[in-house]
Simulated assay, not measured.
Amino acid sequence: MDLHEFLDHVNRGALIEGGSEEHRFMHGAAQEALRTVAEINTGYRTPEEVRGLLTRLTGKTVDESVVVFPPFYSEFGKNLTLGKDIFINSGCRFQDTGGIVIGHGTLIGHGTTLTTLNHGVDPARRADMSPAPVTIGDKVWLGAAVTVVPGVTIGDGAIVGAGAVVTKDVPANAVVAGVPARLMRYTGFEATP
């Protein structure tokens, strides 16, 4: 199995069975990601060096407008897509195996966790994983310590309050907060390019 085949598998939402070829590939690929993440998080790195390491981690060119404050964690890397003018504060954890897309101009508060895999409910199949992507639109603001679960889309211009756990889609320009996150109001603004 190669990266293209694995990404095709997970991006279709196909099950990753515990002990399967896909499962073994995922764990092997994680080792490469963990080496790169260790370089990001060990000692001081200039913004340019961080972007270079993120380019290696994702396999995609990371725009010079992207700013990430380490430490930063990703267990896979190759299914993470970053737009332009993104700021990711320190201590964020991205489980991108199932796919994470972050739109232009988005701000992500420190300690935020984005998850894209659910484990099997049946204890006999607990090692199985179901991938579901997380999509964050343009000009979104995720407060500190937000958790976004698999399969959630956050619309353009939305704000997610600190400490929220986002378990369902968030409309564009909505303000949500709480555990689980609930609609508080709308911003009254539109996210413009």
Results as ranks from 00 to 15, higher is better:
P47T: 04
P47A: 06
E48C: 05
E48T: 14
E48Y: 11
E49M: 06
E49F: 00
V50K: 13
V50H: 10
R51C: 08
R51W: 06
G52L: 00
G52F: 02
G52E: 02
G52P: 00
G52R: 10
L54F: 08
L54Y: 05
L54G: 11
T55C: 07
T55S: 10
L57A: 06
L57V: 11
L57T: 08
L57H: 05
L57Q: 09
L57M: 12
T58N: 04
T58S: 12
T58I: 08
G59F: 06
G59E: 06
K60C: 11
T61G: 13
V62Y: 10
D63K: 07
D63V: 02
D63G: 07
D63C: 06
E64C: 11
V66C: 11
V67Q: 12
V67K: 14
V67T: 14
V68H: 05
V68F: 02
F69W: 11
F69S: 10
P70D: 02
P70Y: 02
P71G: 03
P71M: 02
P71D: 04
P71E: 01
F72E: 00
F72A: 01
F72L: 03
F72K: 03
Y73W: 12
Y73Q: 09
Y73G: 01
S74H: 10
S74Q: 08
S74V: 00
S74I: 00
S74C: 13
E75D: 15
F76S: 09
F76Y: 15
F76C: 03
G77P: 00
N79W: 09
L80W: 05
T81R: 15
L82F: 13
L82R: 14
G83K: 04
G83A: 01
G83Q: 12
G83V: 07
K84V: 03
K84N: 09
K84H: 07
K84I: 00
D85E: 15
I86G: 06
I86H: 07
I86Y: 02
I86A: 12
F87P: 00
F87D: 08
F87K: 11
I88N: 06
I88R: 04
I88M: 15
I88K: 04
N89R: 04
N89P: 09
S90F: 15
S90D: 08
G91D: 05
G91L: 02
C92A: 03
C92P: 04
R93W: 10
R93Q: 12
F94A: 08
F94Y: 11
Q95W: 13
Q95Y: 13
